[in-house]
Write a protein that binds this DNA or RNA. Sequence first.
DNA 1: GAAATAGTGTCTTTTAGACAATATCAC
DNA 2: GTGATATTGTCTAAAAGACACTATTTC
Lengths: 240, 240
Amino acid sequence: MYKTDDFKNNRPNVGVTVVVFKYEEGVIKTKVYKRNEQSEVFPNFIALPNTFYDITIHNNLEEAAKHALRFKTNIDIPFFEQLETFSGSYIDPDRINTVNISYIAIINESDITEVTIENKNFEDNWLEVEYLINNVDMAFNHKEVLISAYNRLKSKAEYTPIACHLLGNFFSIKELKELTEILINDKLDNSRFRDRIKKSDMLLEVEGAYKKGANRPAQLYSLNHLYSGFFYPKSLTKPN
Amino acid sequence: MYKTDDFKNNRPNVGVTVVVFKYEEGVIKTKVYKRNEQSEVFPNFIALPNTFYDITIHNNLEEAAKHALRFKTNIDIPFFEQLETFSGSYIDPDRINTVNISYIAIINESDITEVTIENKNFEDNWLEVEYLINNVDMAFNHKEVLISAYNRLKSKAEYTPIACHLLGNFFSIKELKELTEILINDKLDNSRFRDRIKKSDMLLEVEGAYKKGANRPAQLYSLNHLYSGFFYPKSLTKPN
DNA sequence: GAAATAGTGTCTTTTAGACAATATCAC
DNA sequence: GTGATATTGTCTAAAAGACACTATTTC
C-alpha cells in the first residue's frame, strides 16, 4: 500500500485557478491581483486568484478554488462551476510539470465583501476582461484560462439564464436584454426577447417591485431557481 | 526555486480515466478491463482504461489519456475531448487524496486494433454501457465517470453531429436517425430530420455510394469535418 | 404637454410537426 | 408485381423577425 512519499518524483504540481466575473458600469470585470515583487516566478505579473492544491489542507478541488477567492465565508456565489483542466510544463516553465484545474464563478456586486487572509500586501483589483485579454501579460497560463472562461460565459448566455447571475437578485427585462446583447455581441428584438422569457418559466415577476426613472417604471424580475432548462428550449426534441 | 521533491507530502495522486464509446449491434459499448487479482486496491473489479499521471513519462494529460487506451499508434480517434475533473479521498479511499481527469472518446469499429503493451494477462472487453451502469460495480470512481461521459454523449447528440463519429466514415440518414433516437430516447420525424440535415452543411453526400438492401438503396453520407456548428443551429441569434 | 423608456400588437417569413405520397431497389 | 424501405411533398400550427404602436412615468 503506497503512501504520500512514494512516487514523490513522479507527481505534478496541482493548482486551481478561478475566474470570477461581475458586471459593473456596463462592462464585465474579473478579479485579479498583482504578484509579489519577490515571487520566484512571474514577479509583478497580474494573476487570477489561484492556489496550490495541498492535500494536507484541502479535501477537494472545489474547496481549494473557493479558498483561492479569499471571500468572507458565507458569501453567496450564485454561479460556480468547473471549467477546464490544463497540464504541461508550459504552465510553470521554470519549475515543474503542472496540472491546473480552472473554475468559473459569478458574483453580484452587492455581495462582495473581501477579506485578505494572507499575503496582505498584494493588490486586489477588479479589471475589465476585454482590457486584460487585449493588453495585459498574465502569470502562468492565466490568459488562456481567462479566455476560456470568458468564452464559456458568452456561449452560455446564448442558451441559459447565466446572465441573470451578473445582474443581482432583481432586474428588469431591459437590463437583461442589454447585458445579453453585450455577451452575444448582437442586437435582440425587444418583442421576441420578451415573448421567449414569458413563455419559459425562467423569470419570476416580483410583485409590486419597479425600477423607476424619468419614464414608465420597469417591472422587476428575479431568476426562477427551479428553472433548470435552456433559455431557448428548442433543440432536436420538442420544447419541454 | 522548488524541485519535484519539495512538497512531496502535499501533492495528490493524479490519474486519468478514459471512456471510449463504440456502436455495435444496436447498442453503445465502452471499453473496460478486469483489474488483477493481486491489485492492492479494487482487485478483480471492472475498470475503465486509466493510468497514473507520471511526470517522468507523460508531457501532458492528453498524452497520458491516449496512453491509457493502449491502442496501436496512429489509430484514428475521431472524437476525443476532456470531460470532467474529480477530486477527493473517496476516489482511492485506502490510499491518498486523488485528482482524476476524465476524457471521452469515440472510435468506430473498423479502426480498432488493440495492443496490450503491459500487463498482458488482464482481460479487455467492450461491454454495453447501460449494462455496466445498472449492474456492475466498478473500481475507484469509474461508475461516476462513465455516467458523466454517457450523459455528455447523449446531450451532445441533441445539438451536435457527435453521433456521426459512432457510425464510421459512411452512413445513411436512416442510420443516423436511428442512432440519434437511441441517444436522445425519443422518436424523430423523418421529413424534419432530413430537412435539418440538408439545410445545415453537416453532411456531405458521397457521390454514387449507396447502402443496398431489399429495397430502394440509401444514399451514403460522410461528416463534413469543416462543419463546426450545431446540429440545430438556432439559439438566441440567427441561424449561421 | 414633452421627453423618455416600458411594454404590446401586427404582419410576413420561416420552421416545426404530422402524415401522406411517391421512388427504387430485390425478389 | 410485391414487399420493403428510402425519399419527397403537403398542409397546418407555431415561432421568428421586423417594426409600428400604445402605456406610464418624470419633468
